[in-house]
């Protein structure tokens, strides 16, 4: 295997790295950059725990080779978390009981973030559709939808720490 040179921006920070050609984006984030907020569940694109934002769109980082991300921009859960405190979306998840074991939460937050970035006033159906690739074994989804709705409605913005 020939090592590859990769220029990639993660959470606003530029990196130049030498990587193995068979490295997944998920491994690059977790192993090389120690950004362990991104989770691996199924590893085959079905659970959404590994969701990150690639050039503005939610993707499964387990299905992308790191080497395919030359010159591209990635946002992970660490990148949407303020220095101190939580983002309105994160706060809303807590306030609405949308976090139980928390394994699905980073992926959920990033799917929700990508949705709200493109569609700030989604319907409930649009919210459900946007998170349909994110499985949660604990909450039953209702609280998650409510948490996202609260941010879209501007309710959480006022209560949240940001």
């Amino acid at each position: 295997m020939k090592k590859l040179k990769l220029n990639i921006t993660v959470n606003g920070q530029k990196h130049t790295l030498k990587i193995d050609p068979n490295l997944r984006l998920l491994d690059l984030l977790r192993e090389n950059l120690h950004l362990t907020g991104t989770k691996e569940g199924c590893g085959i694109g079905e659970c959404g725990a590994c969701t990150v934002i690639l050039d503005g769109r939610a993707v499964n980082s387990c299905l992308i080779l790191a080497g395919q991300c030359e010159g591209r921009e990635i946002t992970t859960i660490e990148g949407v978390t303020p220095e101190d405190g939580l983002s309105p979306l994160q706060q809303s998840f807590l306030d609405n009981g949308a976090v139980q074991c928390g394994f699905c939460t980073p992926g959920m937050i990033l799917s929700a973030r990508a949705l709200l970035d493109h569609n700030p006033t989604p319907t409930e159906a649009e919210i459900r559709e946007a998170i349909s690739g994110n499985l949660c074994r604990c909450t039953g989804y209702t609280q998650i939808v409510e948490a996202i709705q609260a941010v879209a409605d501007g309710r959480e913005e006022q209560q949240g720490s940001l």
Binding site: G45, T51, V59, N60, S111, A114, S132, G133
Partner: peptide, 8 residues
């Protein structure tokens, strides 16, 4: 699939 698939 889901949004994550249709995006790429």
């Amino acid at each position: 699939g889901a949004a994550q698939h249709r995006n790429i």
